[in-house]
Amino acid sequence: MARTLQVIERNKAEKIYRFINYLVDFAFSLLIMWFLLGVFAVLKYYILGVAIEKTADELENMDPLIDRIFTLLAYAFIMFLKEFATKGRSLGKLITGTKVVKTDGSELTMLDFLKRNFIRAVPFDQLSFLGSTGWHDNLADTAVVRKRSFENAKSLESELELIGVKENL
């Protein structure tokens, strides 16, 4: 586990923001999944000639375990795409003014986003927030911070480091 910078620790998002992020992101991801399933049914109709109602019935009667695994992995993949494309901001994070950062202050990589979001597929990850931090943050060495206060603190920190540095004129 990487060392957590104090500026990150002081600006971590409160649990209520994390909960709102989860609700908004999960609802948005479900909408995306429903849309993609609709596109799948229409494509199956046009390519294979299978009635849309038959495809809907097949999806509705899917094995519950397969359904849950597919839904968890689809949610993780959708969240990965959203966070990777927006550099740590999902729809929920945009609404609450939060973002994902590495705990050591380095830039997030694609592997960090993959790790963070596929750990979400671990059963009971949502319950891990009853502790101090969620598993997908702990295991990926990431944290969700309040964006504005974090960036202000980082800016102040860098300005303080410049005190006493001789300028080249």
Rank of each mutant, 00 (worst) to 15 (best):
L59W: 04
E60W: 04
L73C: 05
E60C: 01
L65E: 10
N61F: 05
Y75H: 13
A74W: 05
F77W: 11
I66T: 15
E53M: 05
L65D: 09
T71Q: 11
I52D: 00
I78P: 05
F70A: 08
E60D: 06
E58T: 11
R68F: 05
I69G: 07
L72D: 04
G49P: 00
T71C: 03
T71A: 13
M79C: 15
L65G: 05
A76P: 09
L65Q: 10
L72W: 09
N61E: 04
G49E: 01
I78G: 08
T55L: 02
Y75V: 12
L65V: 14
A51P: 04
D57T: 06
F70I: 06
D67G: 11
E58P: 02
L73T: 01
K54D: 05
I52F: 02
L73V: 05
T71M: 09
D67Q: 14
A76G: 13
Y75S: 08
N61R: 08
E58R: 09
R68D: 06
E53P: 01
L72S: 11
K54R: 07
E53V: 06
M79G: 07
G49M: 04
L72Y: 11
F77K: 10
D67L: 13
D67E: 13
T71F: 09
L73G: 04
D57R: 10
A51S: 11
I66G: 06
D57M: 03
P64T: 11
